[in-house]
Design a protein around this nucleic acid. Structure first.
Length: 320
DNA sequence: TTGTGTTTTATTGCCTCC
DNA sequence: GGAGGCAATAAAACACAA
C-alpha cells in the first residue's frame, strides 16, 4: 500500500474507520488494522475518517462513528477493495481540530502525533503529513506577507527618490535661469564699454584686474600650467581660447554655460566665489573674450537616472 | 456536463541531527 | 543508520464558469 511504501510511519492506530467510495458510510473495520489483526498491512488513505456525504456537505458526526451495517452490505465492501487508491479529504471537524493544534505548536512531537491520530481516528502518518503540508502553506503565506511588506517599503523609497529628483531638477533650473539673467544684464552693460576696452578684448589681451587676480592667485604661468593640467582626455579642451567641454551636450544653450566675465559687479555669493577661486578652469576663463567665457556644465554627477546599483537589481526590477 | 484552475493529500528524494 | 523535516511534485478532490 502507498502509505506503507515509504516505510517511515509507524502504526499505532486505535480505531480505524473505513469509508466506501464517494458517499458511502464510514465503517469501523478495526479487525483489519489493529496491530493484533491477522492483516498487518495498512490500507492507506482509505482508512481515514470521512464525515462528508456525496454532495460534499459535512455532517456533525463525532470523529468516531458507528458503522450502520444496514446501509452497506458485503457488495460495497467488495467493491471497496477492488477500487484503486483514492485520496480522502479530512472532514471540516478534523481540519478544525488540527488547525487548533497547529496554532498551539506547529511542530509535532511523536506523543502529540499519536494522541492527535487517536483523537481524530487518523493514521499518525496522516497527521504528520497534514502538519508538514500545513507548515508549507504557512511558510508560503509568510513569504507573501514579507513580499507585500518589502513592496510597500520599496514604493515609499521610490516615491521619496522621485521627489528628490524633481526637487533637484527644479533647483537646477533656478540656478540656470539666474545665471542667464545675470549674463543678459552683463551683455547690456558690456555694450557701453569704451572702444579701447573692446579693442583690448578683441586682441585677447587679458583684462587687468589685479585685485581679483591676486585674490584668486591666477598668474599667467598659472594659467598655462592650469591649462596643461586640465588638458587631458576627460577635461574640457581649449581651442581658440574657448573651453570646449566634453560635458556639453548637443542642443544645450551655450549661454547657460557662459561664465560671468566681470568680477567687479558679480552678484555671486561668497560661496560661489570661493568655488570659482578654487577652480583653475574658471580662473583661466577670465582671460577669454566675454562671449567665449565658457565653463563646464554645472553638474559633476548625473542623478537623472538612479544608480545602477539601485535600479539594476533584478530583485527590484522584477517588482516594477 | 465539461473544461480548467485551485486546493488538499500523499509520495519521493535529499538533508540534517542524534 | 534511523527518524524526521523540507522542497518538489503527483494526483485526487473540489470549485466554478461557460
Amino acid at each position: 500500500m502507498a502509505a506503507c511504501a515509504s516505510g517511515r510511519d509507524v502504526g499505532g492506530l486505535g480505531t480505524v474507520l473505513l469509508q466506501t467510495h464517494r458517499g458511502g458510510a464510514s465503517q469501523p473495520l478495526e479487525s483489519f488494522f489493529l496491530p493484533s489483526s491477522s492483516s498487518p498491512s495498512f490500507l492507506g488513505p482509505r482508512s481515514i475518517v470521512r464525515f462528508d456525504d456525496s454532495n460534499g456537505s459535512t455532517t456533525s458526526r463525532p470523529f468516531f462513528t458507528s458503522f450502520d451495517a444496514d446501509d452497506n452490505g458485503d457488495d460495497d465492501l467488495d467493491e471497496y477493495f477492488r477500487q484503486p487508491e483514492k485520496k480522502r479529504r479530512l472532514s471540516v471537524d478534523q481540519v478544525q481540530f488540527l488547525e487548533k493544534s497547529f496554532e498551539v505548536e506547529n511542530k509535532l512531537e511523536p506523543e502529540r502525533k499519536i494522541q492527535l491520530a487517536k483523537d481524530l481516528g487518523l493514521q499518525p502518518r496522516q497527521v504528520a503529513i497534514w502538519f508538514q503540508n500545513r507548515r508549507a502553506r504557512w511558510k508560503t503565506k509568510r513569504l507573501e506577507k514579507d513580499y507585500d511588506l518589502l513592496q510597500s517599503s520599496y514604493d515609499t523609497l521610490k516615491a521619496d527618490y522621485d521627489g528628490l529628483l524633481r526637487e533637484k531638477d527644479k533647483l537646477k533650473a533656478e540656478v540656470i535661469n539666474s545665471l542667464t539673467d545675470k549674463l543678459q544684464k552683463k551683455e547690456k552693460a558690456t555694450g557701453s564699454l569704451d572702444l579701447a576696452h573692446n579693442d583690448a578684448m578683441s586682441r585677447e589681451i587679458p583684462l587687468e584686474k589685479p585685485s581679483l587676480d591676486s585674490a584668486s592667485g591666477c598668474k599667467q604661468e598659472d594659467i598655462s600650467s592650469a591649462r596643461s593640467d586640465i588638458f587631458d582626455a576627460d577635461s574640457p579642451h581649449y581651442t581658440d581660447g574657448v573651453v570646449h567641454s566634453s560635458l556639453l551636450e548637443a542642443g544645450d544653450s551655450i549661454s547657460s554655460y557662459v561664465f560671468e566675465p566681470d568680477n567687479q559687479s558679480s552678484d555671486l555669493s561668497q560661496d560661489e566665489d570661493d568655488h570659482h577661486n578654487n577652480n583653475n578652469n574658471s580662473l583661466c576663463c577670465r582671460n577669454l573674450l566675454p562671449d567665449q567665457y565658457v565653463f563646464p556644465k554645472l553638474e559633476d554627477e548625473d542623478y537623472s537616472d538612479p544608480p545602477a546599483s539601485f535600479e539594476d537589481q533584478a530583485f527590484w526590477s522584477s517588482w516594477s
